[in-house]
Design a protein around this nucleic acid. Structure first.
Length: 623
RNA sequence: CGGGGCGUGGCGCAGUCUGGCAGCGCGCCUGCUUUGGGAGCAGGAAGUCGGAGGUUCAAAUCCUCUCGCCCCGACCA
């Protein structure tokens, strides 16, 4: 085991209690286990539930509540109970170790910071209601404070004051700390909360090549983190903002209940989020049908794709959807097939604009000469550039708005009736689209975003004056990157993808306890003696072990063990003991195995250490 | 912010339409029996029916307002 392994939550001796026992051999509160406290089920706090609480809908939420990992305080805020805290701490510790290994340096910033810092970067505006703000009353004045939703401003302010030379760079700083975002709609248990534990790292470099190295180090650290946590993750390309290129990746856990959508090619491995995902070459041949004449038809009140296609009894894909955008203030028309969604990032790039937004109704009316919902590429009131998605070229006898109230045109054909400035890839990818990297087809999956790495550039360093002097005494803004991980989301994502009817399946690395010892006859001194011995030996060998010392029926204890999902269960019962054996069983295996009591602790410790290192059994679970 | 659902012992729920003793299951406490996959019997504790106001002889139930929770959508550095 490497020396940097997770520090064990070791059982602690309680000398004070022993002293008290010496002074008073009969304590008022009988304690059956005077030597140690926290590793006995009856002495810790594990409120498991047989029934699913009202309001919990997705597996991770249900199981975290039922297994006694968390308890809700209000919408979007949870208490981490002892078991949940242990897993959360383990995930955080893996993150910490890999950040350190990658050369990042830990610090911790306050959750509170002055509004003024956020005003300097314009992010009070950008965050809006998400930002938690309040006044702190001080003598004779008030201090406007925000609770950090992230810490670019604070860390950049720090660096601007402490770093001034290229000799102090590059450096990557990180913290693991509670963040606050007023989610207007918290949901999915621990997946979307207003207060959550996040690892946020920030890199500071002198040039773009150096930033690339810092970014690469974080990217690799993230892979190691999710690997060690036993989650199946997917790094996907994401929108990269000002730096462009390969400047942003999201780390996703594919899961039905994820809030994000990723586009993935199972053959070549291309993966991107919907905003970013490119689509490969598409066929643009028109079906071989006779081209009809343009015909203006009345479509009273039918302004949406659904209404128009229902009214005219045609398919949504026969419609040419015309969207009016303002690109850096200039109106442009964007055409996509009726059943597709325009992708604003793609449009912005093709048009070559810095800013792009849907035009206001007034602008649309001026440009088209019709109310919203009746725009079309043929006969607009104003001549504006038209950009069309490739699919549009393949439409024969399409339907478009007539640029007049309550009217559409049928029999519209690109090339004959209008000619776009340019065709391009302007829409969101859908299932079955061609892969942009190989000849295969794209799939669409839901996913949980657990991490994000991003090349920031100089936005914050310029706003907050974080500059360095190079070797030629020139001042430059420091080039930044930022890197986040939602720690609790690792747990929720893991559970979401690793559970069965009975409960959670933890990998050893994240399990609240690695081993649960289940003595069958709690009142039998011989059984309990073996349990205590095994416990002490395992604990001494560095295994996280919990003894279920409750005087409950076997079914209750087995079911709770399955619900919480301890990776390894050791049953100590009179049956086995008669033959000098105990039973061990991995949570994800159906069958148990009898092992000799003699040497059992060493054997179990070896198994657990090996499984913790490789997660081989966990990953091979379910056959 | 738009749409929908739900608030009744610790947990899950019935009762509300049609006003009339506040119930069921689980959990909890006591006793006896039981004891390797959520035991049985007997006894017991525990609820301002989310809150406020109103109607009524009488309100969990009807009316008005309000708070909270959950889901769908919009939004999400």
């Amino acid at each position: 085991m490497p020396s940097c392994a997770v520090p064990r939550l070791q059982p602690r001796l309680v000398p004070k209690l022993e002293l008290e026992n010496e002074a008073n051999p009969e304590p008022r509160i009988p304690n059956p286990h005077p030597r140690t406290l926290p590793m006995y089920w009856s002495r810790t706090f594990i409120p498991t539930m047989k029934e699913t609480p009202e309001g919990a809908e997705i597996p991770s939420h249900i199981l975290m509540l039922r297994a006694g990992l968390v308890s809700q305080v209000m919408a979007g805020a949870y208490t981490y109970l002892p078991l949940g805290l242990r897993s959360l701490t383990k995930a955080a510790q893996i993150v910490r170790e890999e950040m350190d290994r990658a050369g990042a340096v830990e610090l911790i910033m306050p959750a509170m910071s002055p509004v003024s810092l956020w005003e300097q970067t314009g992010r009070t505006e950008a965050f809006g209601n998400v930002l938690v703000k309040f006044d702190l009353p001080r003598p004779g004045r008030k201090v406007r404070v925000v609770l950090g939703p992230t810490h670019e401003e604070i860390i950049t302010d720090l660096v601007s004051r402490q770093i001034s030379s290229y000799r102090q760079l590059p450096i990557t700083l990180y913290q693991i700390q509670t963040k606050f975002r007023n989610e207007e709609r918290p949901r999915f248990g621990v997946l979307r909360t207003s207060e959550f534990l996040m690892k946020d790292a920030y890199s500071f470099d002198t040039d773009v090549e150096s930033l690339g190295r810092s970014y690469e180090a974080m990217y690799k650290a993230y892979c190691r983190i999710f690997e060690r946590c036993g989650v199946s993750y997917l790094p996907v390309e994401a929108e990269s903002g000002p730096i462009g290129g390969d400047a942003s990746h999201e780390f996703m856990i594919p899961s039905e209940n994820g809030e994000d959508t990723v586009v993935h090619c199972p053959d070549c491995g291309y993966a991107a989020n919907t905003e970013k995902a490119e689509i490969g070459p598409r066929g643009t041949e028109r079906p071989a049908v006779e081209l009809a004449e343009i015909n203006k038809v009345a479509t009273p009140g039918a302004a949406t794709i659904d209404q128009v296609s229902a009214f005219l009894k045609c398919r949504p894909q026969d419609l040419i959807k015309t969207l009016i955008y303002e690109a850096d203030g200039q109106p442009v028309a964007v055409l996509v097939r009726g059943d597709r969604e325009a992708n604003e990032n793609k449009v912005r790039r093709l048009v070559g604009a810095a800013r792009l937004e849907l035009a206001a109704p007034g602008v649309i009316e001026r440009v088209t000469g019709a109310p919203v919902g009746f725009a079309g590429p043929v006969g607009m009131a104003e001549k504006i550039p038209i950009y069309a998605d490739c699919d549009v070229a393949a439409i024969a006898n399409g339907v478009t708005g007539a640029n007049a109230a309550d009217a559409h045109l049928t029999g519209v054909n690109p090339g004959r009736d209008f000619e776009p400035e340019q065709y391009g890839d302007l829409r969101n990818a859908v299932e079955g689209d061609p892969c942009p990297r190989c000849s295969s087809r794209l799939t669409i999956r839901q996913a949980i975003e657990v991490g994000h790495v991003f090349k920031l550039g100089t936005k914050y360093s310029e706003a907050l004056g974080a500059r360095f002097l190079d070797s030629k005494e020139q001042l430059h803004p420091i080039i930044m990157g930022c890197y986040g991980i939602g720690v609790a989301r690792i747990l929720a994502g893991l559970i979401e993808t690793s559970h069965d009817e009975a409960g959670i399946l933890w990998p050893v690395a994240l399990a609240p306890y690695e081993v649960v010892l289940v003595p069958m006859q709690v009142k039998d001194e011989a059984t309990m003696h073996v349990a205590r011995e095994l416990h002490d030996q395992l604990a001494a060998a560095g295994v996280d072990v919990l003894v279920d010392d409750r005087d409950a029926r076997a079914g209750v204890k087995f079911n709770d063990a399955d619900l919480v999902g301890f990776p390894l269960r050791v049953v100590i019962g009179s049956r086995g003991l008669k033959q000098g054996k105990v039973e061990i069983k991995w949570r994800w295996d159906a069958a148990a195995e009898m092992v000799n009591l003699q040497g059992a602790a060493a054997a179990i410790a070896r198994l657990v250490a090996e499984e913790k290192e490789t997660a081989a059994r966990f990953k091979g679970r379910g056959r």
